[in-house]
């Protein structure tokens, strides 16, 4: 079974956010780019499916800047068989549909039985690529999946909703987006890191895949106009003293000042 894993390189989640001078992008100096954490679950799940079957191929695909090559190399070190970068820095700010179209172009060539992507790329926090990709391909999808079973030509997926778990069933090929809890991603082994250097990592332009670069530039559907830091919260009112007094004062404030009780 061939499995395609869509991944995104994103600013390190532990990094402090600074706004660049243009007022609309992140100041990426000093920020390490990492594999989006939800994509780690997607890749791990693909590797486990391959290992459980004892056959198959795991292809990782990303659309983004040249620096995403390092992220793809990390995926190869974790165990993916080959990697493809659709290289154009504008993908880092492209909308879900543009990213989905890039992955769909690769999926049409590669004809995988299963596509796994993280539930969203941390940072933009949108969660559009997976469902959009499924729609473009005309495939079923299940999003934010915490448990996945593949039997023959069908899948069963569990997803957490408000206060419950939904169990979905559908046919392959399908797109599954992955949520924390699905698995524990492995670390690349030293052997894996060495092997990754010899694995294929291809780089193509959007044009080479027949993609319309217009939607990445001035004709884009979704425009980022401004990026700002959240307004600072008012200073904390500190309550100290014996527990009975503190609790009585807290309840009074919540009721009379904040009006939330």
């Amino acid at each position: 079974m061939k499995i395609l894993v869509g991944v995104k390189h994103v600013p390190d989640t532990a990094a402090r956010v600074r706004i660049a001078e243009d007022g609309v992008s992140l100041d990426e100096r000093e920020i390490k780019m990492i594999l989006s954490p939800y994509d780690e679950f997607a890749l791990e799940e693909a590797l486990r499916q391959r290992e459980a079957r004892g056959e198959g191929e795991v292809l990782v695909v990303s659309a983004g800047a040249e620096t995403a090559q390092a992220t793809l190399r990390q995926c190869l070190a974790m165990g993916a068989d080959r990697a493809l970068l659709i290289q154009d820095a504008r993908y880092d700010r492209a909308d879900g549909l543009a990213r989905a179209r890039a992955l769909a172009a690769v999926a049409r060539r590669e004809q995988p039985a299963l596509i796994l992507v993280g539930k969203y790329g941390v940072g933009t926090d949108e969660g559009q690529t997976g469902p959009m990709l499924a729609e473009l391909l005309g495939w079923p999808h299940a999003a934010a999946v915490v448990r996945l079973q593949v039997h023959g030509e069908r899948f069963e997926a569990h997803r957490e909703i408000e206060g419950a778990v939904e169990v979905l069933e559908g046919p392959l090929p399908a797109v599954i987006t992955t949520e924390k809890g699905l698995n524990e991603p492995r670390y690349p082994s030293l052997q894996g890191i060495m092997a990754a250097k010899r694995k294929p990592l291809d780089v193509v332009s959007p044009q080479a895949l027949g993609l319309d670069a217009e939607e990445l530039g001035p004709g884009q559907r979704v425009v980022w106009e401004r990026l700002e830091l959240p307004s600072p919260r008012p200073a904390c009112r500190t309550l100290e003293g014996d527990p009975d007094t503190v609790v009585a004062e807290l309840v009074r404030l919540l009721r009379e000042e904040a009006k939330v009780l």
């Binding site: 690529t129 959009m132 499924a134 473009l136 909703i161």
Partner: peptide, 23 residues
């Protein structure tokens, strides 16, 4: 932007080849 809405809106938007602002 519930569990269902986050899942549904992008798929419907893609069907209409349009954009979606999330959450």
């Amino acid at each position: 932007a519930t569990a269902m809405g986050r899942d549904l809106a992008p798929r419907a938007a893609a069907r209409l080849a349009t954009g979606c602002l999330s959450d």
